[in-house]
């Protein structure tokens, strides 16, 4: 057998069931859980332990890089091609700050989005655990466990109100 483990997936029709299931699973020592939800539920989020995300740092890094590129582009090219206009100094910081500000925002946004795509890709689960109803009107709880604990997990999910419980080898 090449199987790495077993995943038990419970399908719920309401968020309350998911909360109960997650609480029961955590109390029983099952930490490796993934929740599927058709909406951004803060109730579910409060049940789960916070995860550190690098997106904030990426956003800051992108914005800082944008500011630097903006100043470098304007100051650098003005020094290289010194053309006086309107009697203003070659390095006219106030107008250059406008360009720098716009690039700060642009690069900050681009870096944030790159971070999001990376995170979405990284946190995608195996398609065989996913049910297309999870994006419309059902919630899912997916638990990875050892073969000898499958029955325990199934019981916990059923007790919490799961309408369907299935297991998949992966």
């Amino acid at each position: 057998m090449n199987d790495k483990g077993i995943a038990v997936i419970g399908t719920f029709d309401a968020v309350e069931g998911v909360r109960s299931a997650v609480t029961a699973l955590h109390q029983s020592g099952f930490k490796d859980t993934t929740i599927y939800s058709p909406l951004n539920s803060h109730e579910i989020e409060t049940e789960l332990e916070p995860v550190e995300s690098p997106i904030g740092f990426l956003a800051f890094g992108g914005a800082a890089a944008g500011a630097g590129i903006g100043l470098l582009l304007t100051i650098g090219t003005s020094i290289q091609w010194p053309l006086m206009t309107g009697g203003q100094p070659i390095i006219s910081l106030p107008p250059f700050f406008v360009i720098s500000f716009e690039l700060t925002i642009l690069f900050g946004v681009l870096a944030t989005l790159l971070g999001m795509f990376w995170q979405i890709h990284r946190s995608k689960s195996d398609p065989k655990f996913y049910d297309s109803r999870f994006s419309v009107d059902r919630f899912g709880v997916h638990v990875v466990c050892d073969e000898d604990r499958v029955v325990v997990v199934k019981n916990l999910l059923s007790t919490a109100g799961a309408e369907e419980v299935r297991d998949e080898r992966f």
Partner: peptide, 11 residues
């Protein structure tokens, strides 16, 4: 690849 997992929603 959106699946609506809790990690995806958090990001």
């Amino acid at each position: 690849g959106w699946q609506g997992t809790n990690k995806q929603w958090r990001s």
